[in-house]
Design a binder for these strands. Structure first.
Length: 654
RNA sequence: GCUUCCGUAGCGCAGUCGGUAGCGCAACUGAUUCGUAAUCAGUAGGUCGAGGGUUCAAGUCCCUUCGGGAGCUCCA
């Protein structure tokens, strides 16, 4: 057989060979480094025997799949360590993940001391350097095997494997054997650098009705240095965590007596949100949106028509008692039905459509207590919401325009590279969660699929993520910890117009159902703010900075001049202050840097006499003396164009 | 909602075996009037998240509750 290698060279073998043997034939070193193989593009175990012509790559920990193999084997080492240190623990599952691996156990919660003990035991196991061997069993034997070992979770896993699945096991020495599809390293001794990160509860099979197991998270790398670097990185991202930095910068705060998920936006945060809001509202207006302002609450009757009462009552703040009170109200969790009644207030002709309604809309959602987080998951928030009532023939164009608006917003804020696009579909297995027929769902999902393809937007399709009334495009971003949130959503709704009896009169004088697009342009302001804090680590584009310029007189003698400079800045709409304290200039600069002010204007004798300012920016350090009007022109232009100036000078700010 | 960790001055932290609370920065006052990352001196600030219990005595031990973190589950 002929084996074509990554570099294009061809090896010929007389008989079948395993991947690891081929690796050893290429070089000893490669065999030592090998984590997995890739045969004809498919990742395989090193033990896989190749017997026909193929292309083969030997994957090492420098390859993504190789690294995840290394991590997966590390999770098995962890499992063996747990069984050694805590023999009563029951094994569940232990996959590799983007950041490392985890393994779930039925056991009492693990403390940090337990993790340290386990790490020590893992080091021992690695030092022992047992070989991993793969073998398969029939379903009956596999179940018997795990029953004898007293592993009920493994038995359940085997029982649920598809009928045609090969049931494989990996053993490492005599002590430990685990049900596993692989692939795995050849020996535990090839694990060079690992660390147990944390432990926490996790439901068996991700089902909150089933027992809670204990999950241990860890990570592993090819080299010690890479591990160190990763651990250091984990430390540094805390510094840009919006929940920490946002409080530090007095953008928001929370108060225990006010309640969970109810952040207070402070003057700095409000300034930023106000700028975002004015920008978005003006942008929408220029794109043909009309603005509405509708009530924050309504009678339950409204939500009964929309279907929210049936589908999302638990998520709403209900005012009153359904049993006792004649009327029950609820704070609105969305604006849809309110804007529908704006539409319905007058009879519409086909000529009136599309109707694009926008509202800066405050919403209330009663999240479960464990879900609240900083500014990203809150109980009250304000969203750049809107609904477009359109004729079916206008739907595709309008939907595309909504995507274009979202992309424009992301580009302006410099966030477009950080997002992923998702086609969120219904779950045909769970019809009770949705309204409408399968035909309507399939058709609308196909429309969105076509559109995204046409626009050349890469996207994933997520089952069961749709709204109850229709599929949607979700634009998601990850926070500093890698957790994903929906930032923007655009939803295709061919169903609610029926519920609300919305219609327009077509060219033949007949009543027709419109389609509806539910959409946001820049999503929820609080969440966007959180995203910006983390993206820019608090060093926002100048137009968004709560304080854009600080004027620093070098002594009290120049306070008057500093204030005349300030007046000129304010006249031009620039957010600025003067630092009037009797401190040394170096100290004032340090403070301004710590406050993340983009521009500092130093003024003293020379500046006053020449009528100029000495500009110091976080972008380029000392920018030298400039006439004040030149500086004002420059910064006004930067603000007007919402320029994202690259930071070239990186000085330590600690 | 579930598992777990945490809550001491504005912020970051210390507080031993239960014996009545301290440090740094910030703040304030005074001096200094300064040229690019911390001028000097002084002052003030806490019923230790809240409530209850054990004890002669609780920041410390126990219970409840509120809030915060991590993860799970959920997220119109």
């Amino acid at each position: 057989m002929k084996v074509t290698l990554k570099d294009g060279s061809v090896k010929e073998y007389a008989s079948a060979m395993s991947v690891i043997d081929i690796a050893a034939d290429i070089s000893e070193g490669l065999a030592r480094m090998a984590c997995a193989g890739e045969v004809n593009g498919e990742v395989v175990d090193l033990r896989t025997v190749v017997d026909t012509d193929c292309t083969l790559s030997i994957l090492t920990a420098n390859d993504k799949a190789g690294l995840s193999t290394l991590r997966h084997t590390t999770s098995h080492v962890l499992a063996e360590a747990v069984k050694r240190v805590f023999p009563d623990a029951k094994l569940a599952i232990g996959p590799s993940i983007d950041t490392g691996f985890y393994y779930d156990f039925e056991h009492a919660p693990f403390s940090r001391e337990d993790l340290d003990k386990l790490e020590a035991e893992m080091k021992k196991i690695i030092k022992e350097g047992n070989k991993l061997d793969r073998f398969t069993l029939s379903r009956e034997d596999a179940i018997k095997f795990m029953e004898e070992k007293g592993e009920p979770y493994k038995v359940e896993l085997i029982q649920d494997l598809p009928a045609d699945a090969e049931i494989s096991f990996y053993s490492q020495g005599d002590g430990f054997t685990d049900l596993c599809a692989g692939p795995h390293l050849m020996s535990t001794k090839n694990i060079k650098a690992f660390k147990l990160i944390s432990s926490s509860g996790a439901y068996w099979r991700g089902d909150s009705n089933r027992p809670m197991l204990q999950r241990i998270y860890g990570t592993a790398f090819n080299k010690k240095e890479e591990l160190e670097e990763y651990l250091k990185y984990l430390e540094t991202i805390k510094e840009r965590d919006h929940n920490k930095l946002g409080r530090e910068m007095e953008i928001f705060t929370t108060v225990d007596v006010i309640g969970q998920g109810l952040p207070l936006l402070m003057p700095n945060g409000v300034k930023m949100i106000q700028r975002l809001q004015r920008w978005i509202e003006d942008e929408e207006t220029s794109r043909g949106y009309m603005r509405t302002k509708t009530p924050l609450m309504a009678k339950s009757d409204l939500y009964k028509i929309s279907g929210h009462w049936d589908h999302y009552k638990d998520g709403m703040f209900v005012l009153g008692d359904e049993e006792k009170d004649k009327e029950v109200f609820a704070l609105r969790p969305m604006t849809c039905p309110f804007q529908y009644y704006v539409y319905k207030a007058s009879q519409k002709s086909y000529r009136d459509l599309p109707c694009r309604y926008g509202e800066t809309s405050t919403l209330f959602r009663n999240e479960d207590s464990g879900e609240m987080h900083g500014l990203t998951r809150v109980r009250q928030f304000t969203i750049s919401e809107g609904h477009l009532i359109v004729r079916p023939d206008q739907m595709v164009k309008e939907f595309k325009d909504c995507i274009a608006l979202a992309q424009y917003c992301l580009q302006t804020l410099g966030l477009e590279e950080d997002v992923t696009y998702h086609l969120s579909k219904w779950d045909p297995e769970n019809k009770t969660k949705y309204i409408g027929t399968p035909e309507v769902w399939e058709e609308t999902e196909q429309h969105i699929r076509d559109m995204l393809n046409e626009l050349n937007i890469p996207f994933t399709e997520d089952v069961g993520e749709a709204a109850f009334y229709g599929p949607k495009v979700d634009i998601n971003a990850k926070n500093v910890y890698g957790k994903e949130d929906t930032m923007i959503t655009i939803q295709w709704d061919a169903l609610l117009a029926e519920q609300f009896d919305m219609y327009y009169i077509d060219e033949n004088g007949e009543k027709k159902r419109p389609y509806i697009i539910h959409r946001t342009s820049m999503g929820c302001y609080e969440r966007t703010l959180a995203w910006l804090i983390e993206k820019y680590a608090g060093l926002f584009p100048t137009w968004l900075c709560p304080e854009q310029v600080r004027v620093l007189p070098i002594s009290d003698k120049y306070i008057d001049y500093a204030n005349s400079v300030l007046a000129e800045l304010k006249k031009n709409g620039i957010d600025a202050t003067v630092d009037e304290r009797s401190e040394k200039i170096g100290y004032k600069i340090r403070e301004a840097r710590l406050d993340r002010i983009p521009y500092m204007l130093v003024v003293g004798e020379k500046e006053q006499e020449a009528g100029v300012v000495s500009v110091r920016s976080r972008y380029a350090g000392d920018e030298g003396q400039k006439p004040l009007d030149t500086f004002v022109n420059d910064i006004c232009k930067e603000i007007r164009t919402k320029e994202i100036r690259k930071i070239e000078v990186t000085e330590e700010s600690k």
